[in-house]
Amino acid sequence: MLIMGVMAIAIARIRDLFAVSMLSGIFSLTAAAAYVVLDAVDVAFTEAAVGAGISTVLMLGTLALTTRQEKVTGGKSKGTAAFFVVAVTGAVLIYGTFDMPRYGDPIAPIHHHVAPRYLEKSFGEVGMPNVVTSVLASYRSFDTLGEVFVIFTAATGVLAILGRAGRRRREDEIADETVTARSDDASPDKDKETAS
């Protein structure tokens, strides 16, 4: 975790966005490692695949399309104000930690209210040894349904924002989209405006 701390600060300081993206990937990977030692293998797996994999690829893709270098700006006042906000938020968080159950404490309330049922009965009720899967796909499957829709929204959203329709290569798109013949009332000028 200390490594992560160093990396987070490095991310904040480094101006080369390429390096930042890679660092953020490694940051995720380290987090995944931390998840493993914290007994959250499923999460670690996902974080490694997503945080380190997909996100990094996307970032690099974006950088290829935009620019690699962050500009050096003198926004001192902004930095100070931001630091103040962050300090206050952090202080509240730290303040909040004081009454938290100790790390790994087996008598903490979270281990005694809802969770025991999952651990004790899920095998009898759902029949899966992996409790995470049981909870994910059965007890709280509605959450997962939502999650699936979130990713669906993201995918279609990216299509809507960046999709070829309305972009420079709109003509090809129209060619293969035989169903959606352009109507006359939407003026082409306006579309161009959106695209540019």
């Binding site: 695949a49 992996n130 995470v132 999650e147």
Partner: peptide, 18 residues
């Protein structure tokens, strides 16, 4: 294998996509 060990649809999907 998600029922028995770590893994499941989500991770599989990501790997598949990858």
């Amino acid at each position: 294998h998600g029922d028995f060990g770590p893994g499941g649809g989500f991770q599989a999907g990501v790997i598949f996509g990858a």
